[in-house]
Every structure is written in C-alpha cells, then in structure tokens.
Nucleic acid binder design. Structure first.
Lengths: 125, 125, 125, 125
DNA sequence: GTGGTCTAGACCACC
DNA sequence: GTGGTCTAGACCACA
C-alpha cells in the first residue's frame, strides 16, 4: 500500500480499515489483523498502526478484547456509514454545489458523467 | 472568519481570496488588502496572510508590486477557474461518485437537493 | 460475569472470589471451583483463572492440595478483612474525603445516600 | 513529580493537569505549558506529554490553537467536575458503601474520621 | 516558537 | 501470542 503525502499515515490506515469494513471484506464481529501483522504488511511501524486502531476504537468502530486482539464492533458498518453521511451531506455536498455554480457546470453534465463512471467501474474483478 | 480545524489556515485564507476573485468582489487588476490589513481583519498573524499571498503568487493569481502591494493578475479569474475545474473533474468528482454509491444516494436525490440549494442561496444580500 | 475494561481480568476474578469468601458463599475450608470449571463459567481462558488463584494463594487466602484442588484457608475471612481494612483506611478513605471536598458533597448527603443504599440492597434473594 | 508504577504516566499527567484546572492554578482559557516545556519539567519524553494533552483534548477539556499552543477550554472546570461526579456517584460511592458493610464500619466512624481529615488538611502552607 | 507524525526499539502486563 | 506504554530522536508544517 502506498500512502499519500499530505495526509497522516495513521489516518490513511484507519480509512483503509474503514473501507474494508464498509465493503464487507472484514466481516462484522471478526478479528482484524493484529497490530504487528498489519504493520509488517503495510511496511510501517507498529506504533503507526496502533494509532490508527486507537482512532477507530475512539469512534467505537472496533473494540479490543484484552490479550486477544481487535474486533469489529457489531454495528461498525452503520456507524461508519452514519459518520460518512453526516460529513457528506453537511460539508461535501454544499461545497460540491458551490463548485457547480462557480464553474458553471450543469446538473445534466454531472448526470452524464455519473453514468459513464458507473459503466467504467461497475464490472470489477 | 472561522477556520476549519483540519486545514492549514493559510490555505483557507488563500481559498477565501480565490472566492473573492471568482465572485468578482475583488475586481481584475485591483489592489487587494494589504497583508497587515487582512491579518487584523481575520485575526491572524500577518505571517500567515503572507504565506497565503505567496501561495497565490506562486500560482500567478496575484502579483506583487514592491512597496505598493499585491494586485490581482489580469487573467486571474480564468486561471483560478482552470485550476479548480481540473481539480474538480480529476479528483473531487470521482470521489463524489464513489460516495454516492457507498452511501446509496441516488442522482435524483442530488438533483432535488441541488434545486433546494439554489433557492436557499440565490437571494444574497 | 462482565469485566471492567481498565482492570486486569485476573484481578477482577480474584476480587470476585474474595467476595464469595467474605460473604460466606464459599465456606471456610471448602474446596473452591476448579480452574477449568470457573473458567468455563466466567467465559475466560483457564490461564486467567489460574493467575487469579495464584494471586490469592500468594496472599495465603487459598491453599492448593496437589491433584485435588484449591481450598479456602482456615483463616481466610480474617485475612481478607485485614487486607481490605488496611487498604480502605490507608488509601480509599483519604481519597474519598478529597473527592467529597472537590465535588462539594456534604457528609449529610452521603449519609442519606447510604440509607437509601441499605434499603435497596438489604433484601437479597 | 513522581509517578505511580501501576498507572500509565500519560494518564497521571492528564490527572495532574486536571487537578491544576480544578484548583484554579491554571485559569480558565489560559495557555497551558507547551508540550516540550512540561516534558522537561516532569522529566518525561515529549511524546508522553503529547498523549496526555491528546487525551484531555478528546475530553474537550483543553483546545489547541494551531502553532500557538494548548488552552484551557472555557467550560473545562464544569466538564471535569461532571466527569468526576459521574464516576464518583456511579462507581466509587456504591463500592464505598459495600466496603462499609463488609468491613463493619459505621457511618459515625466515617464522620469522625472526616472531621479529623478536615482539621489535618485544611491549614495547608 | 508551537504541535503533529513517524521510526526504531525496548519492556511490560495480560490472555 | 496480544495490546499498551515509553523513550530517544528525527523531520515537518504552521504561526
């Protein structure tokens, strides 16, 4: 995995974990990779993974069973979705609309591009 | 002006200046507020405003006349628009589409919200 | 049984055993549950129960008869009471008093709450 | 400052900061010592102080002004008190009462000891 | 100057 | 084996 320069690595790891949960790759209530394991997978320091897990634990997306490991919270998916939706509707969408107006892009053009996007991305694997 | 926590203040100031230019509040080739003036307006350290201006200067959106001040470049508006459009189409839009799919929001809902947004924001003072 | 997050499970198990002894549920000189039995009762790893028993053994509250099991020491109750009293008077009570002052709670309020507490807890099955 | 062995240093630092706020040594909205400064004062690694500050920031007891430092939140005192009171009434007090019953200590004895405690601790400095 | 992040490596308690 | 904490030291962006 490669990391973007302008964002903290631990946040990118947290986001990566979030994706895995949302996409169902890491199933509800499953054990997630141990700190050391993921660290060696991603080629980062264990402390960095630890920070990512602490971050997610603070959001109650994962929970810790002492001496055993981290597990996905039973309602992790809903929580993550709720977080995202709140952010999306509250910040991204208004910003998106303002850009449409400023850049003089019509809703119809967006619609067309969306359909193209779906076609290009909907037959993965 | 209030600043978002997770973004550098100088970038937020640069964005604020960009808005003013795009919206025509700061007219083409006009002198823009001096570093000290804007700093005291926004309640920030003059160095921070300076960084914002240097940033915009680097993008050739504003130019510096030594001893006089900063002025809006003659083609500032087009440049800003070009920058934004490139970023918008290249990064924001695909990200936006991915969010729509993940959060299960339809294009129709977006359209409706857009119309509401226009109504709410189209009667500025 | 549910465990508090911030305290080692084996210590919580030891405390649980202590309670049972002090309350007379586990009678003087009785055999106490085997490691495996208690472990399956409490849904924890047998090693964890073992550590709790070793801890109590170190305090001479229980004794091990090899091949047979653990037994409550003849003077277990007095010992436990002594340990607790020492800890209570030496550490908890001063801490308790400091909290009263900091949180501006009066002795009278404590008294009232104590009476309520007794009423609520004095009709056990 | 000396640290207890059985509690994480960063938590002890957070508690120490909390005391200073509750006792008014660090006034409302004041700037608190910088990470490096406190670290050298307390003879610990800056990272450790950082964790303590992050912890307090998570509880919204202190806030960060970018590039300037950490400041005490305007309602820090109330928040801290609320946290403590919740913990005290919810956990410590019932535990305290249970100990009274188990150890056969009367409320009157507590009262007497409390008066002694006040006399001993009320003429500091 | 400030905080923020990261690494390398260590030691510990716990399960 | 697991996570949790701590140190030493580095580098960075920001005000």
């Amino acid at each position: 995995m490669e990391f973007r320069e302008n964002e903290a690595i631990y946040l990118q790891i947290a986001a990566y974990a979030g994706e895995n949960i949302l996409l169902g790759k890491w199933g509800q209530e499953d054990k997630i990779p141990s700190v050391r394991e993921l660290a060696s997978d991603l080629q980062v320091n264990p402390n960095t993974v630890m920070r990512a897990y602490e971050f997610l634990q603070g959001k109650e997306v994962i929970v810790n069973k002492r001496g055993i490991g981290f597990f996905i919270a039973s309602d992790a998916k809903q929580k993550l979705k709720a977080y995202r939706k709140e952010d999306f509707l509250g910040h991204e969408l208004p910003e998106f609309f303002r850009n449409l107006l400023l850049l003089e892009i019509t809703m119809d053009e967006i619609k067309t591009r969306f359909e193209t996007f779906i076609v290009e991305n909907n037959q993965p694997k």
